[in-house]
Computed example of a mutant assay.
Amino acid sequence: MTGLLPRSVAEAEGPAFWFLNNLCIVKATTESTGGAFSMVYQIAAPGHATPYHLHHVEDEAFYVLDGEYTFICDGVKTVVGPGGYMFLPRGIPHGIRASGSVPATMLILATPGTGFVGMMEEMAEPALERVLPKPTKPDLEKLNRLCAKYQIDILGPLPK
């Protein structure tokens, strides 16, 4: 027996963070899944893009709920809309852009659940409201330091 118990999280539940100008709500943590995975519900403004980056420890899976995202994985672009799924394995450079004209939402599953949520929580600010934050310029020095701590390489801006 693993000691884990069934767990349910309602739509309005889970710690909320403003992370790199997105609203992120943590639905499952490493602790709640015995290290198996973490899950985050994310809302991104149109045009928002992650840096081009590479995870050394975890794989990521994305399920798009609303809007449109363009995923760039090892230089290949894939556009995913509502109901679409994208898997990005560790060790391969990738990044994501909210490419539609309206805010986009998705679920992000990271496995094992050790790095992404920890880095996000250390980088982010607790969300005062469950709305998109006012855009700010991220502290890139802090982002690079935290990504290094969680074995994520920042490779530069997302390619067009």
Rank of each mutant, 00 (worst) to 15 (best):
D139S: 06
G156F: 02
L132A: 06
E121F: 04
G118K: 02
L146N: 09
D153F: 08
M119P: 04
P138Q: 06
Q151T: 12
L128M: 13
T136Q: 15
Y150K: 03
E125K: 13
G118F: 00
V131L: 13
D153G: 03
M119R: 00
P157I: 06
N144C: 05
K149A: 11
P157W: 09
L158G: 07
T136M: 14
C147E: 00
R130K: 15
R145S: 15
G118P: 03
G118M: 03
L146F: 13
R130Y: 11
E122S: 12
Y150C: 01
P126T: 11
I152Q: 00
P157K: 07
I154E: 04
V131C: 14
E122P: 07
Q151M: 12
D153H: 03
M123F: 15
K137E: 14
L140E: 15
D153Y: 06
V131A: 14
E129W: 05
P133C: 09
K134A: 14
E141G: 04
I154S: 08
M120N: 07
P133S: 13
D139G: 09
A124I: 05
I152Y: 00
L132G: 01
Q151A: 11
E129A: 15
V131G: 12
L146H: 13
P133L: 10
L132S: 04
C147T: 10
P133D: 12
V117S: 00
K134M: 12
A124G: 11
D153T: 09
M119N: 02
D139F: 13
P133N: 11
P133Q: 13
Y150L: 03
M120F: 03
E141P: 03
P138T: 02
I152M: 02
V117D: 00
L128P: 13
A148E: 05
L128R: 15
K137Y: 10
P157N: 11
I154K: 05
E141V: 08
Q151W: 09
E122M: 10
L140W: 14
L158D: 01
L155A: 02
K149Q: 11
G118N: 08
R145G: 13
L143N: 03
K142C: 10
A124P: 03
M123S: 13
C147D: 01
P126M: 06
R130W: 11
F116L: 12
G115D: 09
D153M: 04
A124M: 08
T136I: 14
L143G: 01
I154A: 07
L132R: 12
A124Y: 00
D153A: 06
D139C: 10
M119E: 05
E121G: 02
M120C: 13
I154N: 05
L128D: 15
K149D: 11
D139H: 09
G115S: 14
L155H: 02
N144Y: 11
L158I: 04
C147L: 04
A148G: 02
P135K: 05
T136S: 15
L132Q: 06
L128Q: 15
T136E: 15
L140Q: 12
V117G: 01
P135D: 07
